[in-house]
Amino acid sequence: MNQTYQPKTWLGQQANRFAPGLFFIGLVLLWELICRFGNVPNYILPSPAAIFMAFFDVEFSRWLTHLWATLRVALMGFGLSILIAIPLSIGMMRSELMNRVLYPALIVIQSTPVVAVAPLIIVLLGTDDPSRVLITCLITFFPLVVSTTTGMLETPPEMIELSQSLRAPRYRETWQIRIPYAIPHIFSGLRVSITLAIIGAVVAEFVAAEEGLGYFIQFSTSFFKIPQAFAGLIFLSVISLLLFKSIQWIQAWFFPWSLPKKK
């Protein structure tokens, strides 16, 4: 283990403690300075100040509308992909045939750019939430399937032998041993998926939507309101970050044992 740097003075300690925040603030300041003194126009790279002002160009209630539209689609798509991915992984773990048949199909789905099939989905499912939810689901479910399957296969073989020696029913092997053992893997899959869910919702909004942050960004760009588009982007990053964090909180709250041990 490498030694963590421990500053001696009080000021040093504070600086060390707030280092990530200070780094971020420094970055923003640098950005502002480049924009100001480099005479970079807003339509090329908006300055942080211009982006900040752009937040107030849009009514707060409109921000909430767009935010909610994106969040709603992202969460529904994410939820749907959990509902599909976990039973699918269990099925593929239990049945070798299912595994052989489905895995190549899943890889094909995963490697198809969703943007390319999105118009098709819109034609089939209409321009409302169902299409956007499906697009989000298609983007998010693969990492979940992979992580859940990996997790269940990484159960210690002795535990499976214990289960067999007890002649326990297989569903209990799945529920009481394999799934709990897969929890850490499932959660790393969930963390990847939740950020992809936001991307999925935005991609879907690029194809068809009347509201949402993706729509808003596209819309702002079409009016060359670049600072406003950046403000939308910042909202997107903030909700991605919060969702990512909430997955961690859920894991820490409900499955504290599944976290790596702190030394």
């Binding site: 118009p119 819109i122 034609v123 321009t127 690029f206 194809v207 068809a208 939507a209 009347e210 729509y215």
Partner: peptide, 12 residues
């Protein structure tokens, strides 16, 4: 309903 290009509008 907003569109994303003339082809998209025609398809819809």
């Amino acid at each position: 309903a907003s569109g994303r290009g003339s082809t998209d509008a025609l398809t819809k």
